[in-house]
C-alpha cells in the first residue's frame, strides 16, 4: 500500500474503494476521526499479533457503515488493500456489518444495535477477574444506538462494578429520534461514570479525552460531530 494511504489524509481514498452501502455513508463518516485517533494514537494493538492477550480491546458496536472502520484497519495493516473493493460481495471478508470470524483484529461481530456495550462490560469484568492489569477496553456506540435499552442495563452495571478499564465513545451526530435532554454525558454520570464531551473532529481533544485516567470508574467520551442529514 502506498505510504500516503496509510495516513489520515488517505482514508477518504480508501473509503471510495468500498461501494454499495451509500445509505450508511454519513454514519461511516461520523466515526472516521475517532476511529483514526483510536488506532493511530490510543489503542495498543498490533496487526501482527491480533490475539495478544495484553492488547487493548476495541469493540465497534455501531456496526452500521463500517467503511471508515475498514479504511482505518487497512491503513493500519489489519486488512489487505485488495480486500476493500470486494466490500459486500459474496466471498468478501468485508460485509456491511463486520464479522469477527473473518477479520483478525476485529473483536466484535456487530450490526444489530445495543449488543456491543453489554459485551464490553463483560470483557472488562473478565479482565478484572483474571487480574490482567494492562488491557483497556474501548467500545464505540452511536447516540441513536443508545435508544436501545440494553445499553442502560450495561451502563448501570459498569458503574456499579467500577470498571475503570472501560471507555465508551459515543459518536453524537444527533440522530437519536427523541434526543437526550440534559446531555448524553449526564446520563452516564448518573450511573457513576467519568464523562467528557469533545469535538469529534478535533484529534488532540479526542486523544486527551480518551487518555484521561479514570482508575475507579468507567469513562464515556461523547464525540460531537455534524448533525446527521
Amino acid at each position: 500500500m502506498p505510504p500516503s494511504l496509510r495516513t489520515y489524509e488517505g482514508l477518504p481514498a480508501l473509503m471510495t474503494l468500498m461501494t454499495g452501502d451509500e445509505k450508511h455513508g454519513r454514519a461511516s463518516e461520523s466515526t472516521l476521526d475517532v476511529l483514526w485517533v483510536l488506532y493511530d494514537r490510543v489503542l495498543t494493538v498490533d496487526p501482527h499479533a491480533p490475539d495478544d492477550p495484553d492488547r487493548d480491546r476495541f469493540l465497534l458496536s455501531k456496526g452500521h457503515g463500517p467503511m471508515a472502520y475498514y479504511a482505518v484497519l487497512a491503513a493500519k495493516g489489519f486488512i489487505p488493500l485488495e480486500a476493500l473493493p470486494t466490500f459486500g460481495r459474496y466471498d468478501s471478508m468485508l460485509g456491511q456489518h463486520p464479522d469477527r470470524s473473518l477479520i483478525a483484529g476485529v473483536e466484535l461481530s456487530s450490526g444489530s444495535l445495543g449488543h456491543g456495550l453489554p459485551i464490553a462490560v463483560g470483557v472488562a469484568a473478565a479482565l478484572d477477574l483474571k487480574g490482567r492489569a494492562g488491557p483497556r477496553v474501548f467500545c464505540l456506540v452511536g447516540d441513536a444506538e443508545l435508544d436501545e435499552g440494553s445499553n442502560y442495563e450495561a451502563m448501570a452495571l459498569a458503574g456499579r462494578l467500577q470498571l475503570g478499564r472501560l471507555t465508551v465513545c459515543v459518536i453524537d451526530n444527533r440522530s437519536a429520534t427523541h434526543g437526550w435532554p440534559g446531555g448524553i454525558d449526564e446520563r452516564f454520570r448518573l450511573e457513576g461514570w467519568s464523562a467528557a464531551t469533545v469535538d469529534g473532529r478535533d484529534h488532540d481533544a479526542i486523544v486527551a479525552a480518551l487518555s484521561a485516567p479514570h482508575p475507579d470508574r468507567p469513562r464515556v467520551v461523547v464525540a460531537e460531530v455534524e448533525r446527521k442529514g
Binding site: 459485551i119 464490553a120 462490560v121 463483560g122 470483557v123 473478565a126 479482565l127
Partner: peptide
C-alpha cells in the same frame, strides 16, 4: 451479553 463478554476472554 455480559456472559458473552466473559466468554470472549
Amino acid at each position: 451479553g455480559f456472559a458473552a463478554g466473559l466468554a470472549m476472554e
